[in-house]
């Protein structure tokens, strides 16, 4: 069985300026990986490459056995929606929609049928009971983060990617969020990849990949 994430000789840059240089990275289904490095080392760019939002200069990225270079346009968008659950540092919830509609929208974009009781169960698990009809502007930071995690899980993706999920949290909350991500990913048997510059995450995930700013 192939790895959930498999990266080989990945290079990316803007013009002559190299930004990402990763020779090898693998992440198995159900495992977790912390991509760590200082600001400006290309962590977010690496995540965007893995999500198919950027096209590599060279090398290959395979997600669930699918070489992303073989996909383009709408097919790549649909693959991303179906196979990846993304958690953003600033959550990026749809301001116009309430919590429930945000989760339904993610399921729709993933072309995933979502039963109502399934949605209720997910909200219950993430402590979002009673918040389903709240707009994002009515949520606290912690509640919004849990909605963002629920949105990444709602279509049961095999890969979950989180971008700086703990950067604005205190130690206790940072630990709680990483714990929640690990727990929910494990429950869904999903591979978890966390991109962070937060040294507090060290040791909390199964493996680590340290990026250095390319010379």
């Amino acid at each position: 069985m192939s790895a959930a994430v498999e990266v080989t000789d990945l290079r990316f840059g803007y013009g002559d300026r190299p930004v990402v240089d990763v020779s090898r990275c693998e992440l198995e289904q159900g495992a977790s990986l912390a991509v760590i490095g200082p600001s400006g080392c290309g962590k977010t760019t690496f995540l965007h490459l893995l999500a198919g939002l950027l096209e590599p200069g060279s090398g290959s990225i395979r997600l669930m056995g699918q070489d992303l270079s073989e996909l383009s346009g709408a097919a790549l968008d649909r693959f991303r929606g179906r196979h990846i659950g993304l958690v953003f540092q600033q959550f990026h919830l749809m301001r116009a929609l309430n919590v429930r509609a945000n989760l339904q929208l993610a399921a729709k974009l993933a072309r995933c049928k979502l039963e109502s009781d399934e949605l209720d169960g997910l909200c219950r698990r993430l402590g979002l009971d009673g918040l389903e009809h709240h707009k994002p502007s009515m949520l606290s930071q912690g509640q919004a983060q849990r909605v963002a995690i629920a949105r990444a899980l709602v279509h049961r993706p095999p890969i979950i990617m989180a971008d700086e999920p703990t950067s604005s949290l205190d130690d206790n909350n940072a630990k709680q969020v990483i714990g929640l991500l690990k727990e929910t990913a494990a429950a869904a048997d999903a591979a978890l990849l966390v991109v962070t510059h937060d040294q507090r995450v060290r040791g909390l995930l199964d493996t680590e990949l340290e990026l250095k700013a390319p010379a």
Binding site: L53, F88, H92
Partner: peptide, 15 residues
Amino acid sequence: RRDLATLRCLGATRS
């Protein structure tokens, strides 16, 4: 624009 970018990340196509 961030909403639109987020939609793309969630699987929305350009169309």
